[in-house]
């Protein structure tokens, strides 16, 4: 009799800071335990033993930002049973999506690189789901380790992973954290941002800046922006609060655009 084969897991990186993959490495103990239940067959940051697909579970960090990545993500999708995108870059284009829709890529290239001809880049930095079907998106900058481990454990148990879609505000109420907007008049994206981080920023005395992207039931991002203007922000500053780590996520992108109109 042959032993049952373990699910084959792969980790890939597109345009990103490596922080989400590092969350996997930082899950040290869990990783060693998980290593008994799965077989990590492709994880370049951790191992030089890189094997070809097919893969049962594939985790992708990073946004699609170059022509090569566009081709690569299609191959990865072909080779993967379940494709999970991890982090703000893979799910919303990342902070590097601040170049999107500016029409200024060429000027951006010239600003950073002395010889622009050497640089190949797509006009926009986009989420993976813009190119291929994605089975589960785990947002966050970085992702939450617990969410990732629970998602993998669910898949191993044959269940569909579930992620919380409630906003950071709910988390603050649950924890009894004093509201930074009410107590200190500090602009906070908590009412419209998905929780997952554990409401870290309000607990550390500052407003949420939207790392986990728009909550499923976002309330009204534009209305929150108008509240920021009442608190003393200029419309451009209010728009910039949304045009940030997950600024290319549709709910935040639209809010920023409307608030910019107020400026004009």
């Amino acid at each position: 009799m042959t032993a049952p084969t373990k699910p084959r897991v792969a980790v890939f990186k597109m345009a990103s800071c490596d922080g989400c993959q590092l969350q996997i490495l930082d899950a040290e103990d869990a990783l060693l335990e998980l290593a008994g239940a799965i077989e990590i067959v492709h994880f370049a940051e951790a191992s030089s033993d890189l094997r070809p697909g097919p893969y049962d579970i594939t985790l992708v960090e990073g946004s699609i930002s170059t022509p090569e990545q566009e081709a690569q993500i299609r191959e990865i999708r072909e080779a993967s049973k379940v494709l999970i995108t991890i982090g703000a870059c893979a799910t919303a284009g990342g902070i590097q999506a601040l170049r999107n829709a500016t029409g200024r890529l060429e000027e951006f290239v010239r600003t950073v690189y002395p010889t622009p001809a050497y640089v190949r880049s797509l006009e926009d930095s986009r989420p993976v789901a813009d190119y291929v079907p994605v089975d589960l998106e785990l947002t966050g900058c970085p992702i939450d380790r617990g969410e990732l481990l629970r998602a993998i454990a669910s898949l191993l148990a044959g269940a569909r992973p579930r992620v919380s879609t409630s906003p950071v505000c709910v988390e603050c109420k649950r924890r009894g954290t004093v509201c930074v907007v009410v107590a200190r008049g500090e602009p906070c994206l908590g009412p419209v941002t998905r929780t997952g981080c554990g409401a870290i920023c309000p607990r550390f005395g500052r407003g949420c800046y939207g790392c986990f992207g728009p909550a499923q039931a976002p309330g009204n991002a534009e209305a929150l922006g108008r509240r920021f203007i009442e608190l003393g922000l200029r419309p451009k500053e209010a728009a910039d609060r949304f045009r940030f780590i997950t600024g290319w996520a549709p709910a935040f992108r639209e809010a920023a655009a409307r608030l910019e109109e107020v400026e004009r």
Partner: peptide, 11 residues
């Protein structure tokens, strides 16, 4: 080095 450019200094 083919890490995709992310243009931090520009944005």
């Amino acid at each position: 080095i083919y890490e995709p450019p992310r243009f931090f200094e520009a944005f």
